[in-house]
Write a protein that binds this DNA or RNA. Structure first.
Length: 430
RNA sequence: GCGGUAGUGGUGAAGUGGUUAACACAUCGGUUUGUGGGUCCGACACGCGUGGGUUCGAUUCCCACCUACCGCCCCA
């Protein structure tokens, strides 16, 4: 094989693409119900947009970003996630301006890029769909976003969903907690895993997330963020919990849950699904949180925000493992069978006329025999076949056959061309 | 970036250091003249991921690379 697709990329073939369309259509419909509108931002941005928001010492920025210098010596990066670009666009286009209703609610669907080792449901080019809402600190907005995420996944037929909830508090709370956590872990420094040793001062919250047994033993008794929330943060978190309950949405609080990105504050959440398809037990399918400092970080006015992202490939793996059926619309109304070369112009005209009238129609292009054409019609699951041969050309009548019943009648070309719908209702509707 | 497993036609796969690489499915053609989902017959890898090497000879042995999958790291 001469050429092959780049490592970690995938060709989405027509059959598969139908599933993608279903997912995208469903998502758009739901987002629309919640009054979120699509925003399309570039697939690459200035490197700084991402390094600024993700923390430039992080592995993410140094190891996993597809960054490059373009011919004008600009340092660019393929977007590794959706939020940073949307925030940049929010600021650049002044969506914070008074003429825009607050909160500004947007969603995006598209490819993202990460330089990492491919595995099932994890590729270098992958797709995410996500939402962002700017301009309100109200806990009710947190809950709307969470509810929308749950709603979306339920629409995709996923059961056994679990909502994990945590808060990181505001900056003061987080700083206080961070200090306490370092104080707690430092005496055990030598007993931590190598990774956690480096994490301890760079990003101590991540130690909580460690899967290493050596770390877990300390994490168990580590101080909890929940004990370091100031009044404001506590109030916000309580309100979120209470509103979730009002909506009848169950949740479990996981004080050790942290996010990979530095910019989160207050509410963070993950929606997990129970499936063996993506590893044992519950795995995260949708994750998000509040990022009240992010807009400012990128040079905009102080503006709160909240959003979530969802991996489409992972979603597909889950749906398939769960046995969710994709309602696929692939109907062929009529297949036009032409017998003999002389019928070529007529069959083409008829297929075209059918399409003009809103029917899906197809014909043979390989000069095959009638039998083969009928076989094709059958395999394509055509509802009707329209047969034209020399005799039909002379009489200007075609044979219309309902494939399921086998009933066949003779109909003038004109009727077929002008109103095939009438032909069907007049002759085949019993 | 590290470790493990694998790579034969459109698909699922069998197989061997040596003339024509099983079998099945799919596809296409035929089964007497213009009608489908059946039967029967036939066709279908210039080649066994790529590139080297060993050998009289390699798809089969060795090495490197590529890719996929699994695990680690990480996870926006």
């Amino acid at each position: 094989m001469r050429y092959q697709r780049p490592k970690g990329t995938a060709d989405i073939l027509p059959e598969e693409a139908k599933k993608w369309q279903y997912i995208e259509d469903t998502a758009r419909m739901i987002f629309d119900n919640y009054r979120y509108h699509e925003i399309r931002t570039p697939m690459f941005e200035s490197f700084d947009v991402f390094s600024r928001t993700s923390g430039d010492t992080s592995d993410i920025v140094t190891k996993e970003m597809y960054d490059f210098m373009d011919k004008g010596d600009r340092h660019l990066s393929l977007r590794p996630e959706g939020t940073a670009g949307v925030v940049r666009a929010f600021i650049e286009n002044k969506l914070y301006g008074p003429e825009h209703q607050k909160p500004v609610k947007v969603y995006y669907i598209g490819p993202m890029f990460r330089y990492e080792r491919p595995q099932s449901g994890r590729q270098r080019e992958f797709h995410q769909l996500g939402v962002e809402a700017f301009g309100s600190e109200e806990p009710a907005l947190d809950v709307e976003v969470i509810a929308m995420g749950m709603d979306l996944l339920r629409h995709f037929g996923l059961k056994d969903l679990r909502l994990a909830l945590n808060t990181l508090g505001d900056k003061e709370s987080r700083d206080a907690y961070r200090k306490a956590l370092i104080e707690y872990l430092e005496p055990h420094y030598d007993e931590l895993s190598d990774d956690s040793k480096t994490r301890l001062h760079k990003n101590p919250l991540r130690v909580l997330d460690s899967k290493d047994k050596r770390d877990k033993k300390f994490v168990k008794d580590a101080p909890s963020i929940l004990d370091y929330l100031d009044e404001e943060s506590q109030k916000h978190f309580d309100a979120v919990k209470s509103l979730l309950s009002d909506l009848g949405i169950d949740y479990t609080i996981d004080p050790t849950m942290v996010r990979g990105l530095d910019y989160y504050s207050h509410t963070i959440f993950e929606i997990m699904a129970d499936s063996k398809a993506l590893g044992e037990g519950y795995t995260t399918i949708c994750a998000g949180g509040r990022y009240d400092g992010l807009v400012e970080e990128l040079g905009g006015p102080q503006t709160p925000g909240i959003g979530f992202g969802l991996g489409v490939e992972r979603l597909l793996v889950l749906m398939e493992a769960t046995g969710v059926s994709f309602p696929v619309l692939d109907q062929l109304d009529a297949y036009v069978v032409g017998i003999g070369e002389d019928t070529n112009p007529t069959t083409l005209k008829i297929v075209q006329a059918l399409r003009d009238n809103g029917f899906s129609a197809d014909r043979d292009y390989l000069d095959r025999k009638p039998k083969a054409q009928f076989k094709a019609a059958d395999r394509l699951n055509a509802q009707y076949t329209i047969t034209i041969g020399d005799e039909e050309l002379k009489s200007k009548q075609a044979h219309v056959k309902e494939m399921e019943s086998g009933k066949e009648i003779s109909v003038p070309f004109d009727e077929i061309i002008h109103d095939f719908n009438d032909v069907i209702t007049d002759h085949f509707n019993d």
